[in-house]
Amino acid sequence: MKLNFKENIDLTIGAGGRAMYQLLNQLILKEFDNEFLAQQSDQAILPEIKGRLAFSTDSYVVSPLFFNGGDIGSIAINGTVNDLAVSGAKPLYISVGFIIEEGFPLSDLRTVVQSMAKAAREANVLIVTGDTKVVEKGKGDGLFINTSGVGVINDAIKIVANFKVGDKIIINGSIADHGMAIMSRRQGLDFASDIASDCAALNGLIAEVVALNPAIRCMRDPTRGGLSATINEWASFYKLGIDLKEDQILVHENVKGICELLGLDPLHVANEGKVLIMCAAEDAERIVAKMREHPLGKEASIIAEVQSISESYVTMTTAFGGIRRVDWLSGEQLPRIC
């Protein structure tokens, strides 16, 4: 029997019977196609990996599921790939868990699965094991996805939290695109905009930076809570005083416009294709130059400097030359952003 993609997901698909088998064979195995998944066991048996492992998990509940520049599928792959890549790891294998609400259109599921397959191909990772559950109507919100991933860290890569005053922080481009792309597609906010999410896998870009062998102190992808959250996390965890330079932080015009309209600070708005790299001052310029050669790093710049390695604070030198504090986001400005 062939799956009819005009139909909706029903509870029989989640029950483990023939309907589930059809879904797996005709959609998921077909799209994610690889030798490990093809074993069709409850686990994937993977070849031996030499080196330290990076292991990460994340659940994706983004609403709406489809938005300009991506969908829940591409975020679910890229998000986990990025979480691995910022440790310096080469992401290898991904697991996928779907929680689908009864009544969800099969055609939408196909779109999501195809998008995940494409993202995995582009990021050069394999989706090797997975699970599908269906919950009754009203008990989920369309589709939730969990992905976990494993990557290997090359022994030559050294990311050492050996901070010095004068260390620089680099970002590979503009901020707040993802959050505002989602916001502009939210129900109840009826404004048209051309803002596209920056959702992308960063492992290729990061690998090129790491290959320069610079003195990297730490790396992180600033997703929920935006740039301010990651910088504040670093400042409080490592006891650093960090000063951001307002005139070096790029916010695209269309993003700025909607932020103004909704009264949001771009510093607090989520990104999905950005990496922050803290490095020794003497390595900053060549990292930026390298990044600018890559399609995901064309707008890279140095946006902050470590001013203290004993006192924890985050400030910003404003374009006017004043200095203000940069706080974490408080409250729930934008729920379900990823």
């Binding site: 404003t318 006017f320 030359g321 004043g322 200095i323 203000r324």
Partner: peptide, 9 residues
């Protein structure tokens, strides 16, 4: 005033 740190200036 606070966001642009005007008082300091």
């Amino acid at each position: 005033i606070h966001r642009y740190a005007l008082s300091q200036l």
